[in-house]
Amino acid sequence: MAEKMVRVLIGCITFLIVALLFSILGVMLLKGLPAMHAGFLFEESRDFGRAGGVYYQSIGTLILMGVAVLWSLPVALGSVLFQTEYLDTGKLKTFLTQLTYILNATPTILFGLVGYLLFGVYLDTGVSWVTGSLILAVMILPTLQVSIREAVEALPEKYREAGMALGLSRPTQIWRIILPQSFYGIVTGVFLGLARAAGETAAIMFTATTFSGIQFPQSFSDPVPTLQTHILVLAQEASNPESIAQAWGAGLVLLGLVFLLTLTAWAFRARVVMESEL
């Protein structure tokens, strides 16, 4: 009896979540599609975002995300390998793991604030894509760290032992066994990190982006336009229906981007499962 009730309850919750997801998707499509026209993705925005497309905004978002991952990946990978391959004692390992989880749960506005204070106020570097990508990098570091560590730890112990028994040194072991065998897991982590970076607004708003009037950054100290800031600013012009329509359109593009990244991550995760069954 009780079991039946629990089952019904879980069923309801699942249904609610799925319904919620689909209604968000539905609304996004409904509101966003009208703004889409042939060149929406490849046209410059005009008239303060009220017309035209989101070309430079999309590029800006991609630049910020990509560069953030470039900063973050070596650090994440290095710290994971240090934890799993070089640390033999348990205590420091547990501590570092806890630290990543705490970092992962920190509200992103805090990263934005700290980044703003450090770069914008203290170092006075101004608003630039380099600063923004650095802050994003710190922010997605735990996401990358956790998923890469899971991939490396899922590696069957027997491979490690077989390598050890052949007298491979630690760097050789990492290069020849750990990295190749957990490759797909690492790629999955990168895509999840990218998806997280794409969904982020607060952390980069003060430090990396401006609204309109700019195209590609010409130097390291230039800001970039991003979809996130574009949406935020346009959405505030509630009295102007064209702005709102454009905001929905940009939202749809961003959603599509995140969707694509998550799907790719899934595809790679499926490969991981296949590999570990070998």
Binding site: K158, Y159, E161, A162, G163, M164, A165, L166, G167, L168, R176, I177, Q181, E275, L278
Partner: peptide
Amino acid sequence: LRRNVGLVFQKPCVFPKSIFDNAVFG
């Protein structure tokens, strides 16, 4: 030491690579 003292495991564990690569792995 481990190169001088070779261990063959109870359960064979080959790497998911070619036979050739396995033979020269170490």
